[in-house]
């Protein structure tokens, strides 16, 4: 039995409306060019996209789950970054 499995790739697709590329799933392919072909065939069957990125899964560096607290909790206390933090009188109009 072959132990040479095609590597795993993560697929990112930008849809019709100019939003960022979004992770849509993964697939196996022998190299990047074929991964693009496969991604076209697998993930754009319903006209989902106009641009494809593929990245070898092994090349992705992910934040560690154990660091979730230190990484993301500090943002909770900075409510002033959100527009609703500020009261603007109605008379001023839309801002």
């Amino acid at each position: 039995m072959s132990r040479k499995e095609w590597p795993l790739w993560e697929v990112f697709i930008r849809g019709q409306h100019g939003l960022n590329h979004r992770h849509v799933g993964s697939l196996h392919a022998p190299d990047a060019e074929m991964a693009i072909h496969h991604a076209r065939d697998v993930y754009t069957r319903r006209k989902e996209g106009v641009s494809i990125w593929v990245v070898k899964s092994n090349d992705i560096t992910a934040s560690s789950p154990s660091e979730k607290g230190p990484l993301f909790d500090p943002a909770e206390t900075k409510a002033y970054r959100h527009p609703t933090f500020f009261d603007i009188p109605d008379e001023v109009g839309h801002m």
Partner: peptide, 11 residues
């Protein structure tokens, strides 16, 4: 021979 190929051939 592979799922990706199955899908591509059907296309």
């Amino acid at each position: 021979p592979a799922l990706e190929e199955d899908i591509a051939m059907a296309n």
